[in-house]
């Protein structure tokens, strides 16, 4: 399968603080990829390395088969605060986009603005949060990029605007087959729309892969208290908690767990991600706040 992003040992440090450490990833083409993790986990850093806004401290990154560089027409990037120019009108934003991008699709841009019911003469400063996010998305996709990167695109939106944003994004992905990577600190935002997931915690990749495969290979086991290391080979304990009589484990295993002393349940995506986050927290509790 062809990759849109390939990294090996990718590391980014700001002074003494490590924002991303030893990240090795293959992101397959043609998917909608969710990048999940708590604030400060390194999501924005990874996205900015991917679009060439940052350069690695160590390791390598290849995007669409080349070293990323800013201004690439092949990559569309919507930064976290959905930046638009408050004093410019929507039409001026589109003219600006056309001027900067050789592959600009004016018909697509105008069509989207009309579909959203926005007035091209409206100043961007007067738009609602949801409308601003839609304008930023329109500017990114009218470039007709091969890879679309979105940093927390729906974090600041109300539920209706969030749904409308994701509807527009999915319609675009379905029509053009563009690969999408979007980050969020909430799994619920990504659950329906992503078919590939990367979980980042404390600057490290905890787990990544196809969503259905992840859901199929993770189990929650409950049973009488016992030592998790007796589970046998091929079973990785993601999270373990014990009371005096009972053990509850989240286990990654390709083979079904057929030991009758355990009750085995499926996990949903949110539980799965939380298990990886809790595990990381239990091993140090050194969550770093963003922008520190």
């Amino acid at each position: 399968m062809s990759s849109v992003i390939t990294t090996t040992g990718l590391t980014k440090r700001y002074g003494r603080r490590t924002a991303l450490s030893d990240c090795t990833l293959h992101v397959p083409a043609g998917h909608v990829v969710g990048l999940v993790g708590p604030n400060g986990a390194g999501k924005s850093t990874l996205l900015q390395l991917t679009c060439g806004l940052l350069t690695p401290t160590a390791g390598t990154i290849e995007v669409l088969g080349e070293t990323p560089h800013t201004g690439s027409p092949r990559i569309g990037f919507v930064a976290q605060d959905t930046p638009v120019y408050g004093n410019l009108t929507i039409a001026e934003h589109l003219r600006f986009g056309a001027h900067l991008n050789p592959g600009w699709d004016q018909a697509l841009a105008e069509g989207r603005i009309a579909e959203l019911g926005l007035d091209p003469a409206q100043r961007a400063g007067k738009l609602s949060g949801g409308q601003r996010a839609q304008l930023a998305l329109t500017l990114a996709i009218a470039k007709r990029p091969e890879l679309l990167l979105l940093d927390e695109p729906v974090a600041a939106l109300d539920p209706l605007a969030r749904r409308e944003f994701l509807q527009g994004l999915m319609a675009y992905a379905a029509e053009h087959g563009t690969s999408v990577v979007m980050s969020s600190h909430l799994v619920a935002d990504l659950e329906r729309v992503c078919d590939h997931l990367i979980v980042l915690v404390n600057s490290r990749v905890r787990v990544d892969g196809d969503v259905e495969e992840l859901l199929g290979t993770h189990h929650r086991l409950t049973g009488p208290r016992r030592d998790p290391s007796t589970l046998g080979p091929g079973r990785h304990v993601v999270q373990a908690s014990h009371t005096d009589v009972q053990s509850t484990l989240v286990v990654r295993s390709t083979a079904p767990v057929d030991d009758p002393t355990w009750a085995s349940d499926r996990l949903d995506l949110e539980d799965l991600v939380l298990a990886y986050m809790t595990e990381a927290g239990a091993h140090g509790r050194d969550r770093v706040l963003e922008k520190r």
């Binding site: 749904r163 994701l166 379905a174």
Partner: peptide, 16 residues
């Protein structure tokens, strides 16, 4: 169409 479904339900096209 796949596009109609995802534009309405906001889910991944590959799911459809």
């Amino acid at each position: 169409t796949v596009k109609d479904v995802v534009a309405r339900v906001a889910i991944n096209p590959n799911t459809v």
